[in-house]
Amino acid sequence: MFTNFVPNIGRVLSKYWALFLQGAGYTLLLSFITVLFGTVLGSILALMRRSQNKLVSGFASGYVEVIRGTPLLLQLYLFYFMLPELLPMLNLSKFACVSIALVINSSAYVCEVVRAGIQAVDYGQTEAARTLGLNARQTMLRIVMPQAVKNILPALGNEFVTVIKETSLASTFFVGDLMTQYSTVRGSMYLVIEPLVVVGVIYFILTFTLSKAVNAFERRLQVSD
C-alpha cells in the first residue's frame, strides 16, 4: 500500500491542487466569519453576563453553558435542519446554516474569553473612573474595554486556530471546506490516506502559521505594556 505513497501524493496534488486551494479558502472564510461574528455576539453575551439584571445575566449564562455543554456536531445538525424550517422565507443556503451554527458555538467560547479579559483589568481602574464621575457605561467603553482588548486579542487568535480545525465538522454537510474536498478527492481517486495527508498538512500549515503569528503579536503587546 505504501510503495506508491509518494507518487500518489504527487498525483493527488497535480490533479486536485486547485480544489485543495479552494477548500483552504472556504475553510479560512468559514473560520473568519465564525470568529468575526462570534466575537461580536460573544462580546455582547459577555456584557450581558455582567448585567445587574438577573434575567439578562441568567440568559447569557444559560446560553454559554448549554452551547459549551453540547457537541458542535449536534449543533451543526440542529441548525442545518432547524433553520430552514423555522425561517423558510430567508431561503438560507447550507453554507449560511452551517456558518450560523459555528458562530453561535464560537460566541459561547468568546464570551468566556471576553469576560476573563475584562476581569483581568484591575478593579482600581473602574473605581478611579467612577470617582471622576463617569457612569458604568462610559467606564466600560473608555477605560476597561481598551485595556481588556490587550488580554482578549491573543486569546481570540487562539480561538481562530481552534475554529479552523472545528470547521472540518462542517464538511458533514459538504460546504466546500478542506475536509469536503478530501471527501471529493477520495471518492474520485479511490485513495484514502494520501488526500488525508495532504489535507492534514494544509490544516497544519494554516494553524501553525496562525498560532506563531498570534504569539509574535502577543509578545509585541507585552512590550508595549
Binding site: D122, G124, A128, T131, L132, G133, I143, Q147
Partner: peptide, 15 residues
C-alpha cells in the same frame, strides 16, 4: 462624584 476628587493608594492612573 464629579464634585469630589479621590486619590487612591495604588494611583490607578489609566495606562
Amino acid at each position: 462624584r464629579q464634585r469630589m476628587g479621590m486619590v487612591f493608594q495604588h494611583f490607578n492612573v489609566f495606562p
